[in-house]
Amino acid sequence: MSKLLIEGVSRTFAGVRGGLPVKALMPIDLAVAANDFITILGPSGCGKSTLLRIVAGLEAPSEGRVLLDGKAVTRPGPDRGMVFQSYTLFPWLTVAENIAFGLRERGMAPKELDDIVASYVDLVGLKGFENHWPKQLSGGMQQRTAIARALANDPEILLLDEPFGALDNQTRGLMQELLLGIWERRKKTVLFVTHDIEEAIFMASRVIVMTARPGSIKSDVAIDLPHPRHYTLKTSPEFSALKARLTEDIRVEAMRTAQARPAEA
């Protein structure tokens, strides 16, 4: 059975000031197997973040439904951990307290909680920074904490909405390796939204390419590159071939978006 099932999910936003309603997502069907790392790749504004937010339960679909382990998603919950593009650490909590947040909400005993928090601090390489406030951390460290915070809750699926989008290129590369390393060791079902083609290929066992708005699935590409993956993989011929193919797919969609803009305005 699939871990996650997206069945005919679409989203239409009501028209603004008497305007026509805007269709953000065409009906989407997607089945995600357990422990798969899926990246959703699409041009900006294609509705890929909307799709992820619907899976998270932060937005309701206009039609269709999302099933996690056979149960319909109606609201956000701890079984779907999320990492956002914006820095969403709680600024009044330290790194350790941020990571403990979900466990505290669940009412876990402090003894057990401390061990789990320590192990996740270690996992994302933030030892020595447990008692720092988020403001004292770099963007990369904040996102590492956010990943640890989501994972510490042991969610059924991890949702990431362009988590490295605001980071510089070098940090972004390191973060990709870190997250992929965690996934290779711990196995988790992951849905990762990005507009970066390299990132989409490097991380994924399967890339879903979306069309320009209204978003729908354009192609579904299995990435059979071996694990564990090393950053040098990005310069291999197999990688380049995949990149060439997806670049072509995305380019067409990006051009459609660019041409659609004046008409929308």
């Binding site: 339960g57 919950g77 701890p78 951990g81």
Partner: peptide, 29 residues
């Protein structure tokens, strides 16, 4: 109150009352 913090708390399992007590109140203190 920053909506993204509220959303993050919901995805971490906060209840409605938990959001008020452990997000909205400390965030605005």
């Amino acid at each position: 109150t920053r909506r993204d913090l509220v959303e993050a708390a919901y995805t971490l399992g906060s209840t409605n009352n938990g959001i008020v007590k452990r997000v909205i109140m400390p965030a605005n203190a």
